[in-house]
Write a protein that binds this DNA or RNA. Structure first.
Lengths: 252, 252
DNA sequence: CGCTCTGTTGACTTACGTCAATTTTTGTGG
DNA sequence: CCACAAAAATTGACGTAAGTCAACAGAGCG
């Protein structure tokens, strides 16, 4: 069996959820949280490499990643894989307006993952009943499109080292928002093969540019962690303008 | 002055609009069309190369392309341009949930264009007042994300000729849906430079792969038109699976 | 302890980029 | 409608970033 249901007594609770502020539900008032939790049908636990759902299949559920890291990807007819999105805790996935449309992508766990599960009908009900949720939903979708634009511009116009640098930067900053930086490093379970499929180069070449970044003491990724030694230089290489007007470096 | 307001007596009318079936408003009941038209603040006419709005600026308006072809793009710090979306009649653009967020992209006309203009507040009102519009809005956003996924997978994993073939195919099929095919050709005002910036290769190389497709009698693009002589072969080269279960070739 | 997965490194190939000269097409004004 | 300039496309010679192939070295795991 692919994914495991988390037993009822071990389910995490929405009211104390530390990643709710990144989730679809971030603006739901505290007194509605138990109602929200009632909408959730459960949680799935996945081990690395296990699949949540697959391209071409229907899915009756949508998800919020609760913990771990997961990959959204497609397999092309020639068998090549393109990674489309890197999922971090709080990320919402699997939503489609048309319930009977097959998924256009697959999802696998990159590390040990827990997903919160919501039947699609519940999501539709939630959207209908809570107008703010509708706006939040659109906000998330708009962000998705903007992220896609970043990704397209990176793959379309940048060199291999720039793309890898941008990927490292993006993941690092996103994890940092979640407060999970330790000694300027973050958990990073992707293999170089995964990175290669994300940025559209060969694994061998990823190895080369990664060792370049290591040699220059800018960033390193080893033993499941990503070390960023010089954020500004990493951004310069990626040719990304960091906004640090607030004292904290931000993406745009 | 960049864009020209269409004078009131020459405005096109929503009730007879031939591209409404592709637009955000496609499911609005006929008796609400004058109300819809009241939400529209006017129309802009743009000549080729003129800009509708620019990355980094705020925009108080959203748009539906009524006629012509336009390009959504970004300029990267090094001055390179990545085209992110090709706009056809009926396409909705410029929407963001947060009214004070600057645009993440720019839009220019590729041919003579007319855009329907809606103040953002009106769109928000429309969404609030017409629940079906909300769902339709999400549907459009989901489609946008799927299109982005197609685009990413193409430039991430395919060769230059495959990417160009996919672009030709996509544009051809989308225009064909709109019923604007003549002698197996469609209006196509993009230059090879535009194509290059869309698929992430050099204009010189676009010329080479285009002449390859011409030599093989598969497709040709000249004098502002795109000729598709062999749709199936074009799809094969692009490595796109066409669905012709309905007798008509469709993208997925 | 051996097996598999992941990453590294070197030699060689190739798809695509760059530069530059030339032709063709498009647009504009007389 | 033609003349002209500007823009777009083509072609060839040559350069280079990244791909391919292959051997090898650690790391993780039963």
């Amino acid at each position: 069996m692919n994914k495991m249901e988390v037993p009822a007594e071990k389910l995490s609770s929405c009211s104390t959820c530390s990643v709710r502020r990144f989730a679809l539900y971030k603006d739901i008032p505290l007194d509605s949280l138990s109602w929200l939790q009632g909408m959730r049908s459960g949680q799935y636990r996945l081990s690395p490499k296990q699949s949540l759902y697959t391209e071409g299949n229907l899915s009756r559920e949508v998800f919020t990643l609760f913990s771990g890291m997961a990959l959204v990807f497609r397999i092309l007819p020639e068998g090549k894989r393109q990674i489309l999105r890197i999922l971090l805790p709080g990320d919402f996935l699997g939503f489609q307006v048309d319930l009977d449309q097959p998924m256009d992508h697959s999802v696998i766990a990159a590390s040990e993952c827990v997903f919160c599960v919501f039947p699609k009908e519940n999501i539709r009900r939630m959207i209908r009943e809570i107008p703010e949720l509708t706006m939040r939903m659109m906000e998330l979708q708009s962000e998705s499109v903007i992220d896609c634009h970043d990704w397209i511009a990176s793959i379309g116009q940048k060199t291999a080292i720039q793309r890898v640098a941008q990927l490292f930067l993006m993941v690092y900053l996103r994890i940092r928002e979640r407060g999970a930086v330790q000694d300027s490093s973050v958990i990073f379970p992707l293999t170089q093969h995964d990175i290669a499929d994300a940025v559209g180069v060969t694994p061998v070449h990823v190895s080369r540019v990664a060792s370049e970044l290591r040699k220059e003491q800018i960033a390193d990724c080893k033993q499941g962690r990503l070390y960023v030694y010089n954020l500004q230089q990493l951004a310069d290489i990626a040719s990304v303008k960091l906004d640090n007007t607030t004292g904290v470096y931000r993406w745009r």
